[in-house]
Amino acid sequence: MAGKSPVELLTPDPNRIPSFLSDKIVPIICGALGFGCVCYVNWGSRRPVFSGVQKHVLASTIGVVLGKIVDQKRNEYLSERDAVLRHYIELHPEDFPAPERKKFADILQPWIPIR
């Protein structure tokens, strides 16, 4: 039984179910970084850390929006890159043969203890 071809590896799996946090983790992290930056600035200027609640809300909101934009651009870039690679592999199949499957017994050398 041969391994998957490179085109199959770059083709999206239609049965894949994305995790619950896969599209939310980057905006959450960026929002937390915005909140943390305001806390750090307040701490650095010797004010109470949570003073100026409006700055915290604004920085968190900006962080979430920027996180969504960055995540969207990253997904677009990766899908375009995969499409280009898939197209190149389809045009030049002779350069990308399907790898043969190997068993661990074929790869590992016998173990000889040295005492």
Rank of each mutant, 00 (worst) to 15 (best):
K4D: 15
S5T: 14
P6A: 06
P6F: 07
V7D: 14
E8I: 02
E8S: 06
L9T: 03
L9S: 09
L10N: 12
P12E: 12
P14K: 08
I17R: 08
I17P: 15
P18K: 13
S19P: 03
K24W: 06
P27Q: 08
A32L: 13
L33G: 08
F35V: 03
F35L: 05
C37Y: 12
C39M: 05
V41M: 09
N42I: 00
N42K: 01
G44F: 10
R46I: 00
R46Y: 05
R46G: 01
R47A: 05
V49N: 01
S51N: 10
H56N: 10
V57A: 12
T61Q: 02
I62V: 15
G63H: 04
V70I: 13
V70C: 09
D71E: 04
K73R: 11
R74C: 13
N75K: 13
N75G: 10
Y77T: 09
S79D: 15
R81M: 01
L85S: 09
L85T: 00
H87F: 14
I89N: 11
L91A: 14
H92Y: 14
E94F: 09
D95G: 11
P97L: 11
K102I: 14
F104Y: 04
A105K: 15
D106N: 06
I107K: 09
I107C: 13
L108I: 00
L108R: 12
Q109R: 13
Q109P: 01
Q109L: 13
P110K: 07
P110E: 15
I112K: 06
I112E: 13
P113E: 10
P113G: 04
R115I: 02
